[in-house]
Each structure stands twice: as C-alpha cells, then as structure tokens.
C-alpha cells in the first residue's frame, strides 16, 4: 500500500483518491455502504455562510457519458455543518477531511473559512470559485485572475490550513488564473469544476433543467480536464488536484501523469456508489502492469517524458 501514498500540502494521504465535493454529501451515505476510511480523504459538500435550498427542480439532466446538474449549492450552512455534520462524520471517518467552501462575497468566503479553520478534522480548505449554478455568485470570482486572487487573500488571512483554490474551466485562460492564485498565496490548485452545459427536451421544446443551464461532468469531460490539469501543473509549483470524469484506476494514473498530486472522483460516485472503493482496489494491479512502484514518482511524468 505504501506505493499509493502521496503528500498533499504537508498532509500524507494513504492514496490519492478523493471523492469530489457535491457527490459525496458529508460522507455518511457512503459510510453506511463501505468503510470510507479507505479513501485518501474526501471533499465535503460545498458549504456556504447561510443555509441554502438551491435551485428549483428538475436539477439533473442525463448526457452521453455524463450529466448536468444545477443543484445550486444546497447545504445546511456552515454553522449546522459544524454543529451536526462534522460530529457525525467523526464517528465514521478518522482522517482529515477537505472542507469545500463557496461564497457570494469576499466576506462570505472569509467568514465560512474562518469558522471551518477552527475544526480539528478539517485538513484543507478547498475554495470553490467556480460553481456555475449561482447567478452572479461564485462564477464571477473564478473568471478573472484579479478576483480569484482577492478570494485567496481574503481566505489566507483567516486560516492557517492549506488553501486549495478550485478553478472553473469556463474561462479563456485557466493558466493565468492558476498563476494569480499561486502568487496570492494559494497552497494548491484543484480543477476542474463542471463545464457549463445545457439540454433541451425535444418533445416539449423546453430546457430539461429548471435553471436552464447547469454543470456538465462525468467521463465525457475527462480529456478537457486532463488538458487543463497538464497546463496548470506545468505553470505552478504548488500541488494540483486533478478531476473531471475520472472513473477508473487508469484514469487516476493518467491524471497524475498530467501533473496531479491527488485525484478527485465526482460523478462516478453517483452511478456506482462503490466507485472510489473499486478504483483504490484496482490501483496496485494497474501500477504493477505499468511497472510503477510509487504513484508519487509519476506525478507530472508526461511533461518529463516529452
């Protein structure tokens, strides 16, 4: 098992597999199904200052090899997360958890991060500046290097924990945004969040999703995500977490070769609740076949190999 471990911002992970925010709740739906302590860690549901119901339904649309969601950051708010979800999680998860945070103003981000910073079980703050679902919300921060950097500074001033900035792929130059985040003090970068997408029901002529548009994810987005991870990992020196369409041990290795230190798995958990368990179980055999002793050695291998 030693060959699977990686270091993420100074915290050792038993393996690089991390369920992605929004697809794993606060962990315990899955804990009832398998021992989630096998995970490297997981990123919990995007948490905001106030409780949110999110968008009207339908929130889900099926696509070829993927789906669109417009959940709209439904969550019980940071106070209830601290009061109820985290104590419950402690019962079934004995590792550091990644706290995913979203906000609608710099003050929101700072407020929520400051509260989560005090929670012992929180190992990293993953700051979502990319959620495409909320009008005038997260989207605007993640689409310009200046506003992205402003969020980094706001958050870094209230926490000692590693701050990982989660980027939106719905931008013209993702490298510029990643570099701006690093310069502003980010300890890591994670990407990609969902791609803005849409489906129309041709029988009714209306958008399938009540919010009209939503975030596209799943295996279909993998090549786009991989490309962005490659570009960003070659432009920054902080660790990068790769995600987008990952569904197998092979996908994890490909993401790491592109430059990811760890890999998040999102939508795959929804169609196969044991997806991460299977990936972790399959990794050693796939590594052996590829003559890889340690995953930490292959990070960014594609750039080195030409």
């Amino acid at each position: 098992m030693g060959g699977l471990s990686v270091d993420l911002c100074g915290i050792r992970l038993d393996n690089p597999v991390i369920p992605a925010s929004g697809t794993f709740g606060y962990g315990y739906e899955f804990a009832a199904y398998y021992d989630i302590n096998v995970l490297g860690t997981f990123s919990f549901k995007g948490t905001t200052r106030e409780p949110r119901f999110g968008n009207p339904t339908p929130r889900i649309a099926e696509c070829t090899a993927g789906m669109i969601n417009a959940v709209g950051l439904q969550n019980p708010g940071v106070d209830q997360v601290i009061r109820e979800e985290l104590p419950r999680l402690k019962q079934c998860f004995h590792k550091k958890v990644m706290a995913n945070v979203s906000g609608f103003s710099l003050e929101d981000y700072a407020y929520t991060c400051e509260k989560l910073d005090r929670e012992e079980q929180v190992g990293w703050l993953e700051v979502n500046i990319s959620c495409p679902n909320v009008h005038g919300g997260g989207m605007s921060f993640g689409t310009s290097p200046d506003t992205a950097a402003a969020v980094v500074r706001a958050v870094k001033s209230v926490t000692k924990k590693p701050v990982i900035m989660k980027l939106s792929p719905n931008v013209t130059d993702i490298v510029a945004i990643a570099v701006a985040c690093e310069k502003a003090g980010a300890d890591g970068i994670s990407l990609i969040n969902t791609l803005l997408g849409m489906r129309i029901d041709i029988r009714t002529g209306k958008p399938v999703i009540a919010n009209k548009m939503g975030g596209f994810s799943g295996p279909a987005v993998f090549p786009v995500a991989l490309r962005m991870v490659y570009q960003v990992a070659n432009a920054v020196s902080v660790p990068v977490i790769g995600m987008g369409g990952v569904a197998s041990a092979e996908d994890v290795i490909e993401m790491m070769l592109a430059g990811a230190t760890a890999v998040e798995v999102g939508t795959a958990n929804l169609v196969d609740p044991a997806a991460c368990l299977h990936i972790i179980r399959d990794l050693p055999a796939v590594m052996e076949k590829l003559h890889m002793d340690r995953l930490s050695d292959i990070i960014g291998g594609a750039a080195r190999n030409g």
Binding site: G22, E29, T57, P58, R59, N69, V71, V208, L270
Partner: peptide, 17 residues
C-alpha cells in the same frame, strides 16, 4: 417523483421543500 442523479442521497438532485 423527481429526476435523480444518484437515487441514494448523495447529489441533492432530487430535493423538495
């Protein structure tokens, strides 16, 4: 009934008030 992402409580796709 609602359109579902997962069917087991993980995605918040099927919420109602």
């Amino acid at each position: 009934e609602e359109r579902m992402g997962c069917g087991f409580g993980a995605c918040m796709g099927c919420s109602c008030r």
